[in-house]
Write a protein that binds this DNA or RNA. Sequence first.
DNA 1: CTGAAAGCGCTTACAG
DNA 2: CTGAAAGCGCTTACAG
Lengths: 336, 336
Amino acid sequence: MVTMQDVADRAGVTKMTVSNVVSGRARVRPETEARVRAAIAELGYTPNLVARSLATGSTMTIGLFVPTVCSWFYADIVEEVEDVLEEAGYHLLLCTTRLDGERARRHLAGLTSRSVDGLLIAGDRDLIDHLPLLADARFPVALCAWETDAPDTLPVVTIDYEHGGLLVGRHLRELGHEHVAVLMSPDHVPRLEGFRRAFAKDGVTVPDSAVHTVPDPTPAAAFAAASDLLAAHPDLTAIFATYDVLVHGAMEAVLAQGRSIPQDVSVVGQGDIVPVSRAHPSLTTVSFPRRAMARQAVELLLRGISNDESPISFIQMLRPTLIVGESTGPARGAGV
Amino acid sequence: MVTMQDVADRAGVTKMTVSNVVSGRARVRPETEARVRAAIAELGYTPNLVARSLATGSTMTIGLFVPTVCSWFYADIVEEVEDVLEEAGYHLLLCTTRLDGERARRHLAGLTSRSVDGLLIAGDRDLIDHLPLLADARFPVALCAWETDAPDTLPVVTIDYEHGGLLVGRHLRELGHEHVAVLMSPDHVPRLEGFRRAFAKDGVTVPDSAVHTVPDPTPAAAFAAASDLLAAHPDLTAIFATYDVLVHGAMEAVLAQGRSIPQDVSVVGQGDIVPVSRAHPSLTTVSFPRRAMARQAVELLLRGISNDESPISFIQMLRPTLIVGESTGPARGAGV
DNA sequence: CTGAAAGCGCTTACAG
DNA sequence: CTGAAAGCGCTTACAG
């Protein structure tokens, strides 16, 4: 391995001078610089970042926690994070937590020993019990994609999920729907609250019996849950499903009963959902600005790293938008 | 930050002794060890891996290149790689290349400065032009999921994609199909060759006109390509599509023409494809053992790291398996 | 503008 | 079983 000393010897200077040329920090006489650069090229010198890290305390590496990478949502976040980091010269240590708090804690220890410059945590699933640990981490921490109550001790960039629910509710209200059902994940309570708020504003209540929570997101479970809802509430004119598997299940269930979308039943989803099939109507859905969120979160983290002020603590909410497709229409029998 | 020296002071020993306790390398008197461990616990000491890396030359970090993480195939590989690494105490530096050789080269430089202990490259897309660079990398390199000719200078664990094509061809032959078409990605030539080989064995040729290459994997493009094929070859009884978007497109196109699957046209896919819809028949497809492949590739890499022998150079091929679903049946008019 | 010295936190031989 | 010394490859003040 060729070292800075080798370059210095070759160029007839001290390693100090080589260091100055490489880092560009101090002014170096043009002729000297040229000699050094020539030596670097001839020897094929690459600076050793491990040594530099030990000397400076910065590793130019940040850690990213995501629950999984097998999800469009998080896969997109990972790529966006990597893009922003690359622009800033950082590298990415990826840790998936897999719904396993203990694994998350081990990863946290690993990142600490490795002296990452910062940590971004996407998703409020696994590290939630270890939040106190994060408070006295040796590096800045930022949060993103937090749906439940975000801790106010750490900066967080997230989506206004509740507003997403509100947009859906408002849309269905405008179409005259009164008897609606919700198919949701247990993590999506804020979405439900926003949805209900839109109805409550008009004095309409969405009863608990019309809300079905599906803990296990398999297509089969989603189909079954949707079928149950339709059977239990024959007067239903719309279904709001809080994420993709559920939406697909809901559409399949409606069609399987020989009812049509949206003439008999409107269906609304959330998240950027892939069309199921050309045979199905395009979906009305809420789009979450996940890439923008990831970008802002990383930028916030990087700012925290360079400033190294005391932990910045604030919350940033990005607004989702409603995309109206062909899966929603006026409520059957409503004079709209 | 609490250092090894702090622990030593507290325990009344030298940092050498602390180092021995932490690493477990040399024998330490039980009483001494207990004192050291107590000091570690009281002070909350965490070893600094950066310093250790500088001293030992090992960072306990490996790099992983994947074209993208927004794909079931690669997302699964990333998670499996991480699992194996975690078991071995390594961390993962993730680099997505995004069909950009220049980006890949920059990442390679970054990993070199950061002194990763090894590099795993999944997918033969972006770094292919930089293979010479890899030959004299400062760390072991292993390849996986290589579909085109693998370089014999590096160890590689991959899938026998050609055999996958053969399995599909054989299956369709057994069902009596003669007039078949192929919908493929430009990267999937080996699959086509295997497929053709199965037909050639019976003296049946799959003409070039029945092979359609789709460079751009959008649902719309896939649908259009499949429709073209069906129109150009009205006597078609089966379609082989080499990956998911294409298969979905093919099924939609068949159904859109009012023909049924598999009575009129059989459809076969490759890769572990998500069912499109309950309304469609379950798919006959070839399953690729991607997780097993990823695991073996990492294990190979780790072995290369610990042995640090001269680069091991061999190829390991995993066999895909055919999963027969409801999307294939006897060829229309064939007396099977 | 350039150099000599000390130090980042650990480990690796080598003595005792 | 434990210690004193040197070194991993870089940077950071401090002199000249």
